[in-house]
């Protein structure tokens, strides 16, 4: 079984994003970019499945300009066997990403798609579910544990207030939550080896997908600064305010 791992190149999670002065978006010029942390977890899971003998090949795929290759090299340094760059300068929304990935899935025929539950830039948390819908595959979102046996994936999901376990008939889409695993480091020798692994480039335009977004960003702004409230003198006053004014207890 092949496992396809879509990964996204995002502003490194250590960087505090800064809204550009003109409100176009967030400053990315000269900012460190890395693989989306949730995608690293998804990739780690795929690699472990291969190491356990459930998967034969792990393929990393990303969508973006030529520079997005660096996350594919990272993916291959971590252990992906090969990688595909869907090349485009257009900023693709999750819907378009799902359509492009669907085209790749039809070509590669993976038995499992392992991807991050969301990207830490747009925080949309949608691509995996949309891709599963478009393929007609079952989905195991926000996964904290994955077991593969007999053509099924048993997925434990992080849900509000607990965990839910589902049995999915493969092929399926799994989206990784934070606690699924602790991704490995790419070691130096593996980084060196990754330079020789195959990286295929597909032009997004050649996949027959309309890249026009349905959602446009009108403006990006800093969140409003919180302002100081009031000082209360007694505990009773505090409890009173929380009950009647703020209505939170």
């Amino acid at each position: 079984m092949k496992v396809l791992v879509p990964v996204k190149r995002v502003v490194d999670y250590n960087i505090k994003p800064r809204v550009a002065a003109d409100g176009r978006g967030v400053e990315t010029q000269g900012v460190k970019m890395s693989m989306n942390p949730f995608d690293e977890i998804a990739l780690e899971e795929a690699l472990r499945l291969r190491e356990k003998g459930h998967a034969s090949e792990v393929i990393a795929v990303t969508i973006g300009p030529q520079v997005a290759q660096d996350v594919l090299r990272t993916a291959m340094a971590m252990g992906a066997d090969r990688a595909i760059l869907i090349s485009t300068d257009v900023d693709c929304e999750p819907r378009v990403v799902a359509n492009l990935l669907k085209a790749v899935v039809e070509k590669e025929q993976p038995g499992l798609i392992s991807m991050g539950k969301q990207a830490i830039d747009d925080d949309m948390n949608a691509t995996g579910q949309m891709l599963a819908a478009k393929l007609g595959w079952p989905q195991g979102t926000f996964a904290s544990q994955v077991d593969i046996a007999d053509g099924h994936a048993t997925v434990t999901r992080e849900v509000d207030g607990g965990t839910e376990t589902l049995a999915l008939t493969l092929p399926a889409v799994i989206t990784a939550d934070l606690r699924l695993n602790e991704p490995r480091y790419a070691s130096l020798p593996n980084i060196m080896k990754a330079r020789k692994k195959p990286l295929e480039t597909l032009e997004a335009a050649s996949l027959g997908v309309d890249l026009t977004p349905h959602l446009t960003v009108v403006k990006v702004a800093e969140p409003p600064q919180r302002t100081a409230g009031i000082i209360v003198e007694t505990v009773d006053e505090l409890v009173q305010k929380l009950k009647t004014e703020a209505k939170v207890i």
Binding site: D122, T216, V218, V220, P223
Partner: peptide, 12 residues
């Protein structure tokens, strides 16, 4: 919110 609440996007 985007970027973990570090920015607010107005989308259409």
């Amino acid at each position: 919110p985007i970027y973990a609440g570090n920015a607010l996007a107005t989308v259409q």
